[in-house]
Every structure is written in structure tokens, then in C-alpha cells.
């Protein structure tokens, strides 16, 4: 909005302030509603952000943020001067990519399948069962996996009998990522359908009827009506996902890792956990964490840009 237009609309100087005040008084309840959320973000998201200064210090908790020695970019140099960082970054990126390719579409496909179920009662029942795994702790999921997939477990024995040789699910580094993605899909797919099912309820049923009259089969209707209708939701979810795509989590990976498959489990999150919590290297860990966040912001901004270019609304 140009300055002249703005002045014409809201006035200038005293006049502007008077109108603003009048607006605020008129919408006081709306502002009041806004307040808790506003305070929350300031208090819990913006204030702690100043903590990143410890990435540039040799932070010792007792000396405090202001008392610790300033070391500039030392920790960043440390990280990049070491050959190991490429392994951490590539492990993170590979796992993230697999997550996007295999896990991200899973809830969409499942939601579309559920949408085709005719009996409402059956659909509700299936949905309930699908949500259960989400509430199971990852520790339990890993324990169940261990029982089923390690030697002597039912899956291990079954594959051994079918193939004639065993597959070392729990110790082969090449299978590590597959196991992680598999567990994520098992645990979270059902829960992930919620948002897509909600989007699906907005599809105008008249469109289906019209398409049926025109002789469109189920697949055609899916392709030409359902998918375009939820496309913006999918894009939105994908962009949101890009923000956390580098978050591989550390608990799941640490639980699944052992001496034989560890090289596939070493991601940036695991590194931050090991350095920051287990070794009390707060500064070093925050430096690596900060770097990860910068990459995440770049991913979100660029994917939002791409969405705009594709003619979607995007995140903002």
C-alpha cells in the first residue's frame, strides 16, 4: 500500500492515532484474545532465541551467558574442520529425504483409501485402530521390533525359512534407515490421516455426482476431483514438513543403533544430544543446532517460493 493511499484511508498524525485508538477500543475483546498467544510466542519462542549467543562462547553454566569466554566462530570451525561432519550431514539428509519420499505420502494414500470406505461404522472402527500406534511410546515400538526382528524373532525366522539365509535386520547398516522409516510409517501414518480426512470433507459432493453422470469411474473421480481438492492442504503440509525435515529425532535413532549399524544412525540431532547432554559441551552443541536451524529456514523459505511459483497459496 502506498503512503498516499494509506493516509487517505487512515488519516495522518493525530487523526491516525485517534482512529487507531478507536479501533483498538472497538476490537478490545479480539485483542484480548490475541494476547495469550502473543505472550506465549514472545516468552517461549523469541526470548529463548537469545540463548544462541552461547554458540559463540565457551559457555560454562556457572559463569553465565555474560561471564563466559567469547570464542567467535570457533565451534563452527571445529565442526567443519573435522571430516566427520559430512557423515552427520549426509545421514541427516538421506534420512530426511527417505522420510519425505516414503513417509509423507503414506497418510495421504491412507486417507484416500479411508475416504472410499462405504460403511461409516466400519470406517470409524478402522480409524480408531489406526490412531492407536501414535500413542505407543517409541521405546515400546523399538522393543517390539527387537523381539520380532532380531535373531530368533518371528520375522527373522520367517525370512530365513523363505530365503534360505537370514537377513540381519537389526545389525545391517544398510537396513537401518529402512527400519526407521518402517517404524515411523507404522506408528504415525494413521495419526497423519486426520488432517487430510478433514480436508476431504470439504470436497463438494455435487462434483462427484456430476462426474458420475458423465461416466467417470472411481479412479477418474479420485484423480480429477479429490486430489485437486486437497492439493493445497498437501502443499501446505509439505512446506510445514520442510521446516522440521532435518529433525531426525535422537531418541528413536539412539534406541535402534548398535555397534554394527551405528554409522547410519549418526545424524545432526544425535550429535547435538551426545555433545550437549552427554558431554556437557553446551556451546558446541548449540552451534551445530544453530547451523541446522539455518538450513531448515532456507528449506522452508525456498519451498514456499516454489509453491508460489507453482501457483499455490503456500504458507504465507
Amino acid at each position: 500500500m502506498k503512503r498516499a493511499e494509506r493516509i487517505a484511508l487512515y488519516g495522518q498524525g493525530k487523526e491516525y492515532r485517534r482512529r487507531l485508538l478507536a479501533d483498538v477500543v472497538r476490537d478490545r475483546w479480539l485483542f484480548l484474545l490475541l494476547l495469550p498467544g502473543f505472550v506465549y510466542f514472545i516468552l517461549f519462542k523469541y526470548v529463548p532465541m537469545w540463548g544462541v549467543v552461547i554458540s559463540f562462547e565457551n559457555y560454562v553454566p556457572y559463569d553465565g551467558v555474560f561471564g563466559s569466554q567469547w570464542v567467535g566462530l570457533k565451534w563452527f570451525r571445529y565442526f567443519f574442520s573435522n571430516k566427520a561432519w559430512t557423515r552427520y550431514l549426509s545421514n541427516t539428509l538421506i534420512l530426511s529425504l527417505l522420510n519425505i519420499v516414503f513417509y509423507f505420502p503414506a497418510p495421504i494414500i491412507l486417507a484416500l483409501l479411508l475416504n472410499e470406505v462405504r460403511s461409516v461404522k466400519y470406517k470409524k472402527l478402522v480409524q480408531t485402530f489406526l490412531y492407536v500406534p501414535h500413542f505407543i511410546s517409541i521405546v515400546i515400538v523399538v522393543s517390539i521390533t527387537l523381539v520380532m526382528f532380531s535373531s530368533g524373532g518371528i520375522v527373522y525366522r520367517l525370512t530365513e525359512q523363505l530365503l534360505g539365509h537370514p537377513i540381519k535386520y537389526m545389525t545391517d547398516p544398510n537396513l537401518f534407515r529402512g527400519m526407521i522409516i518402517g517404524q515411523t510409517i507404522w506408528k504415525e501414518t494413521g495419526w497423519g490421516t486426520i488432517i487430510f480426512l478433514a480436508a476431504l470433507t470439504n470436497v463438494d459432493t455435487q462434483l462427484y455426482e456430476a462426474a458420475m453422470v458423465d461416466g467417470a469411474g472411481r479412479l477418474r473421480r479420485l484423480w480429477h476431483i479429490t486430489l485437486p481438492a486437497i492439493r493445497s492442504t498437501i502443499v501446505l503440509m509439505l512446506i510445514l514438513r520442510m521446516g522440521s525435515v532435518l529433525d531426525t529425532g535422537y531418541d528413536h535413532l539412539i534406541l535402534m543403533a548398535n555397534s554394527l549399524n551405528r554409522k547410519a544412525s549418526q545424524t545432526l540431532d544425535v550429535f547435538v544430544y551426545q555433545q550437549g547432554l552427554q558431554q556437557a559441551q553446551y556451546s558446541y552443541a548449540s552451534a551445530v543446532g544453530l547451523m541446522k536451524s539455518v538450513v531448515s529456514i532456507i528449506l522452508v523459505v525456498s519451498s514456499n517460493k516454489i509453491a508460489h511459483l507453482m501457483g499455490e497459496e503456500g504458507l504465507y
Binding site: 571445529y78 566427520a84 550429535f271 551426545q274 555433545q275 552427554q278 558431554q279 559441551q281 558446541y284
Partner: peptide
């Protein structure tokens, strides 16, 4: 260096 990378 051991303090920074030792555990890894």
C-alpha cells in the same frame, strides 16, 4: 580436541 570430539 578430545573434549570436543572424544566421545565420537
Amino acid at each position: 580436541t578430545y573434549t570436543a570430539f572424544g566421545s565420537t
